[in-house]
Design a binder for these strands. Structure first.
Lengths: 119, 119
DNA sequence: AAAGAGTGCTTACTTTTGCAAGCACCCGCG
DNA sequence: CGCGGGTGCTTGCAAAAGTAAGCACTCTTT
């Protein structure tokens, strides 16, 4: 078959689960938000199924993180990417933060910028 | 199924075909280079099949273009090219923040990371 | 303590992916 | 001509994706 196929070894599932738990979402909640079945999400998280591009995209949306991040985790996008500059982008890409935490950091950053513009 | 499914309407296939022709490759050549069957590639190009993440990645490699580009064409990646990787680094480099502000953002970020490790 | 809802997981099933094999066609060449 | 090799396309079929329904368990609530 020549094209990579991941089995129950894939770290992608674990990553998704971790993100879901950081956001305090149940399997069903995230599955609904993504338009996929909870059964399927459960299998993805445990590495038994290999989500298609569209499901991956939907998961990225549901988890409120950039599709790039998820695809990088899936080993599809080269994670290297760009030369580090934009704080907001860096926050959005960070795989260890919850959606809420990312939101807070971005807000804080932007309020700083705003204040600075004033003086 | 709620998740996007493309039929023979998809512009992705046409894009792939155009790229293939620009490279003066036959269907079989590109298919071989990608490790997929020529039958399947033919169907993808005409929009009858919906390549998985892995096939898409293989196609990007075979066409020698970045996976980002192809995924953007597939309508999966927002063409917004992000840079920046590391949050702390990005914050430290940001020229619009004060030292104090940088310190606060970094502290906030690190406390989030710490909290996440706990649960 | 039984009902009710929430959690994740399993099973049986349908639909889609992706391939091996083969079709029809167009060339260049002996 | 007639044959070998190029082109893209079609057609079954095996294997994987994805779902609906339901299981086992834990909490609340009554």
């Amino acid at each position: 078959m020549a094209v990579k196929r991941s089995g129950p070894d894939a770290g992608l599932g674990e990553f998704i689960r971790r993100q879901r738990e950081l956001g305090h979402l149940s399997v069903r909640q995230l599955a609904d938000a993504c338009g996929i079945s909870n059964a399927y999400l459960s299998q993805i998280e445990r590495g038994f199924r290999n989500p298609s591009s569209f499901v991956l995209k939907a998961l990225a949306d549901g988890l409120e993180l950039s599709a790039e991040t998820l695809y990088a985790q899936a080993g599809i996008l080269d994670p290297a990417q760009g030369e580090a500059n934009d704080v907001v982008e860096a926050v959005r890409r960070d795989p260890y933060l919850s959606a809420r935490q990312r939101e807070m950091l971005v807000e804080m950053y932007e309020s700083f910028r705003k204040v600075n513009d004033a003086d």
